[in-house]
């Protein structure tokens, strides 16, 4: 897409009432499509509420956990104390809050289909690759930015509430890695949700699958010894491995291989979503 080609089509076609200044490249590409997507997210109460809920739930639980765990640590013996992971404890709120972020991902996509706005959106950005790429990227960048803040605030909230002897600092061993992984964890789960929503198109159906999967099924299956061999590879379980200072026992995954498995799930869902968006009539 060159500027000369655009100028050629824009200028003589300008005809009725077109304001001057068509010389600038005004063609629709990924940046403008993303600007549109961001506006769509911002102008919808439900998506903004999901982001707020994600932040509020995560930070509140992090704060509460730190607050109540601090005193109870006093009564523990040395062995129990050694098992205590102040970092993972601080991210427990994220495990609950991420459901709201998953809902954000689902609604960003499915609200277009349930309301019918998909048709005006695709009329505005008819190239499906640009449309889908812009939607997915905007959702991902938003999820990532919010996660960065939420993970950071959650961490400091917990450590502050835990108090000096038990808490960890930002520069302690393993801490930066866990915080980066935590941010990737919520972001990638959001990408997974957007991909799946693009295939299923329905908010109720997608959330009906994802909430039980992330909230219960994965936890239940990972507590059954035999099933755990397979269940540890489920998206949220695989990513969860990276949220501990020391990888939990009973999983073959390490922090980074767990993250890779989660990333693979997210990529698979995103690709399936694109296949659906490209092929199907809107």
């Amino acid at each position: 897409m060159t500027t000369t080609a655009d100028a050629k089509t824009d200028t003589p076609a300008a005809g009725p009432g077109r304001p001057a200044g068509a010389s600038a490249d005004l063609s629709v590409g990924l940046p403008s499509a993303m600007a549109g997507e961001w506006t769509k997210i911002r102008t919808l109460r439900s998506t903004m509420w999901c982001l707020a809920l994600f932040a509020a739930l995560s930070v509140a639980v992090a704060l509460l956990t730190g607050f109540f765990m601090g005193p109870s640590l006093e009564g523990m013996d040395a062995r129990e104390r050694a098992k205590f992971d102040p970092l993972s404890t601080g991210l427990s709120g994220l495990r609950l809050g991420m459901l709201a972020l998953v809902a954000f991902g689902v609604l960003t996509v499915s609200s277009e289909y349930t309301s019918g706005t998909i048709r005006s959106s695709l009329a505005a950005v008819p190239r499906r690759f640009v449309f889908y790429g812009a939607k997915l990227l905007t959702g991902t960048v938003t999820a990532c930015a919010v996660s960065l803040v939420v993970v950071g605030v959650s961490f400091f909230a917990t450590q502050l509430a835990l108090g000096r002897p038990s808490s960890v600092g930002l520069t302690d061993e393993g801490v930066p890695r866990v915080l980066v992984c935590a941010m990737l964890y919520t972001t990638l789960l959001c990408v997974f949700a957007m991909g799946l929503a693009s295939v299923l198109r329905s908010s109720a159906l997608t959330l009906g699958i994802l909430i039980p999967l992330f909230f219960m099924l994965s936890t239940i299956l990972n507590n059954i010894p035999g099933v755990r061999k397979v269940a540890q590879f489920l998206p949220d379980a695989a990513g969860d491995v990276a949220l501990y200072q020391e990888p939990p026992s009973g999983t073959v995954l390490s922090a980074w291989s767990g993250m890779t498995v989660l990333a693979a799930w997210a990529l698979l869902a995103a690709a399936a979503g694109y296949a659906a968006v490209r092929r199907r009539d809107a």
């Binding site: 005004l26 063609s27 629709v28 403008s32 499509a33 600007a35 549109g36 997507e37 961001w38 506006t39 769509k40 911002r42 102008t43 919808l44 109460r45 439900s46 609200s111 309301s115 019918g116 706005t117 048709r119 005006s120 959106s121 505005a124 950005v125 812009a134």
Partner: peptide, 22 residues
């Protein structure tokens, strides 16, 4: 006629479309 999201304002709907096309 019903290609609007019930939770979005008319202005919000049009803004999203406008920005996508500069």
């Amino acid at each position: 006629a019903r290609l609007l999201h019930g939770g979005r304002t008319a202005r919000g709907h049009l803004l999203g479309l406008a920005r996508s096309n500069r």
